[in-house]
């Protein structure tokens, strides 16, 4: 599904990622953890194709294609989905319009016709249940006036409608209270599938109580310094991130 090889990336001339190696197979859920400034968000932004990130070395292969050569929309159309850490508010664009435009963009790439209006509404209503969103949110402008939790649920709703092959969740748990976290996590868990991979980027272990990952990686100073299973996350929770710096570089999954 996704293969990251020796990925180096800089922001404004400053090297943030210093050789990331990682392989994600279909159906796997990977968690990338690490302290602030480790490069977690840089990694998700590089994968999604945001401007301002310069890849200086290495490559990212997604379903056999060089992901880094694709425009952000081409990545999305091929099934890469980024759930934003800070979802933007877009005045003037309704949620339902966005969902439809996004779904049709994917369908167009797949050679399918635009979605039928009734099928679309049924799909969206069904997926809204997953994240316990009220239908009134459909007609509101994207994220405008939403609470922190509503914005994150809205991201997961988009994921649920678009059914990506690879979802990258960038700190989807940040800023959520316990109840909102549970709703978001249950939504994501429900979207686990054999042909769908999920990469969760998080600072805290608590999200992983709800979405149990197959692999956990510790990112520190732009490198994956340790990889393991869910037990590693618990260890981190207990001992903090300081000990990983002393540990030898971990094997990549």
């Amino acid at each position: 599904m996704l293969e990251i090889k020796n990925l180096h990336a800089s922001v404004e001339g400053k090297e943030i990622l210093r050789g990331i190696n990682m392989t994600v197979n279909p159906g796997e859920v990977h968690a990338i953890m690490g302290p602030n400034g480790a490069g977690k968000s840089t990694l998700s932004n590089v994968l999604a194709g945001r401007d301002g990130y310069e890849v200086t070395q290495g490559e990212v292969i997604y379903k056999g294609e060089n992901l880094l050569e694709l425009e952000p929309e081409e990545r999305a159309q091929r099934g890469v989905f980024l759930a934003f850490q800070y979802p933007v508010e877009i005045p003037g664009v309704s949620n339902i319009y966005l969902l439809k435009a996004a779904l049709n963009a994917v369908r167009k790439y797949q050679g399918l016709d635009e979605v039928d209006a009734i099928d679309f509404l049924n799909l969206v209503r069904d997926r809204m249940k997953l994240v316990k969103m009220d239908e009134q949110f459909l007609h509101r402008n994207v994220n405008e006036g939403f609470s922190g939790g509503e914005k994150k649920r809205n991201e997961i709703l988009q994921m649920a409608v678009l059914e990506p092959a690879l979802a990258i969740l960038d700190e989807t748990d940040s800023g959520l209270d316990i109840d909102a976290l549970r709703v978001v996590a249950e939504g994501v868990s429900a979207l686990r599938a054999e042909d769908r991979s999920i990469v969760m980027i998080t600072h805290y272990q608590r999200l992983l109580d709800h979405i149990v990952p197959d692999f956990v990686h510790v990112l520190s100073e732009g490198k994956i310094v340790k990889s393991g299973d869910k037990e590693l996350a618990k260890e981190l929770e207990k001992s903090g991130y300081s000990w990983v710096h002393d540990a030898p570089e971990g094997q990549t999954a």
């Binding site: 194709g49 945001r50 929309e73 877009i90 664009v93 435009a101 996004a102 988009q158």
Partner: peptide
Amino acid sequence: FFLRARGLDETAARSLLTYAF
């Protein structure tokens, strides 16, 4: 970027944001 990350090509995204404005 948000709209492009949801699959809208740049022209469509600009057009939508212009309309939204």
